[in-house]
Computed example of a mutant assay.
Amino acid sequence: MSIPTPRTRFRTRTLRRLAVLATAVASVLPATAGAAHATTPVVPAASATPPGSIAAAPYYYLDSYNRPDPVDIMRRTGARWFTLAFVVAPDADTCAPQWDGGGTLDADSAPSKAIGAIRAAGGDVIPSLGGGGVTKLGQVCGSADALAGAYQKVVDAYRLTAVDLDIEGAEFADAAARQRNVAALKLLQDNNPGLKVYVTVPVLDTGFSSKGVALVNEAEAAGLDVTAWAGMAFWFGKGAIDMGDASIRAMNGMQTVVRDAYGMSDRDAYRHVGLSSLAGVNEDPGEVITLQDFQQVLTYAHQHRIGRLTFWNVNRDRQCQADGSDPADTCSGVPQSLYEYTGMVAKYRQPAA
């Protein structure tokens, strides 16, 4: 049984309230096997590798009416990398990439302008492929070649150095979709030497689920070089447990699976796992990820040099209003200063090998 994610519920409630934000989906050609690289990227590449650690890249949700200014976040917190959510399919019949909410890859689209602003301020981005509650390319594209072609369009459009596959929900539960994603990412990596690939999956508080273990084994068998496996360490269904301890248990369990699957040392395996957390109160009754939990995880991250530290998401990284009038997924529900979770993630520096 797959683990549900709060992203789907948060998004559903938000979209019901904010249907006026829906935009027309631009007409795009479907990806085909062996699709050629785009000749002219729509957004300039970053001028240099940003300072800070690519391993520390909090999620930034583009399809949000209260979307904060990413450059302001960078200035306030020191963050330099963002994981941008989400690249999806426009519908169940079209194997072509667009941003969740209808944003295209064109240079004049809001997502592309946001990427340009982040890069102009000295940062960079990791687009997240997939997500919760939307139509995923991994389900729509009928072959690994077609899926790789769709992903390649995103890499070309933004001259990417890294991508994140956020595989959850029905896509994660579908064995064929999991295998298709592995094969497509291997093709993508072969065609883009040096491209970092992060994979984000739901986990138990003890580590990977059986589906996660299967995905790790499939990736190893295919020769896919996963920079880090990030566990979505929330929505455990256990109520008011210590989420700092639970997050660490999850990563320790993941480390064992990655170590054994890839034949790595303990040290190297820790560098290939990570955490995808949540800021504040989850909809699961009693489950709260506090700033103290984050500090505990940050200490663990530095101790083990983990490969990824992120959370959902900077859009909700603020204290809720006293009257409780905040729309869904726009505040943390815990006492905090503005962007305090983001600032803690930005402190993480994965040491060099």
Rank of each mutant, 00 (worst) to 15 (best):
V273F: 12
G52W: 09
L18M: 14
A246K: 00
R180M: 07
D145V: 04
S276P: 08
T49G: 08
M254V: 02
L309W: 06
F86T: 02
A322F: 01
L165E: 10
A301G: 11
V87S: 07
E171W: 02
A24Q: 10
N252R: 15
A157C: 10
Y300H: 09
Q189P: 11
R75A: 07
R11H: 14
G123A: 00
W229R: 07
G130H: 04
R308W: 07
V163W: 08
S337C: 02
T206F: 12
G102L: 06
V334F: 00
L129V: 10
S64F: 01
G123S: 02
L291P: 10
A279R: 01
C141I: 10
V25H: 10
T40V: 14
V163L: 15
A121V: 03
E283D: 13
L165T: 12
R267M: 11
Q189H: 07
A176W: 12
T32C: 03
P30T: 12
M232T: 03
G280R: 01
L21T: 06
V213F: 05
A230S: 11
H304I: 05
L185N: 11
A55Y: 04
V20M: 15
R16G: 04
T227A: 05
S112Q: 04
G169E: 14
L195R: 07
Q319S: 13
F10A: 12
P193W: 11
Y61A: 06
R75N: 13
R259S: 06
A144T: 07
V25K: 14
A322E: 08
V88S: 02
I118H: 10
D63V: 07
L21P: 10
S337G: 13
N252D: 15
D268H: 02
A56M: 12
I3T: 15
T5M: 00
V199Y: 06
V88N: 00
D108F: 06
H302P: 05
V140R: 05
K153N: 09
T299Y: 03
V345Q: 03
A214N: 00
P70Y: 03
G52C: 03
V258R: 00
Y262A: 02
P97W: 00
A177G: 09
F236G: 12
V281C: 02
M243T: 15
I115E: 09
E287L: 12
G34C: 00
V201N: 01
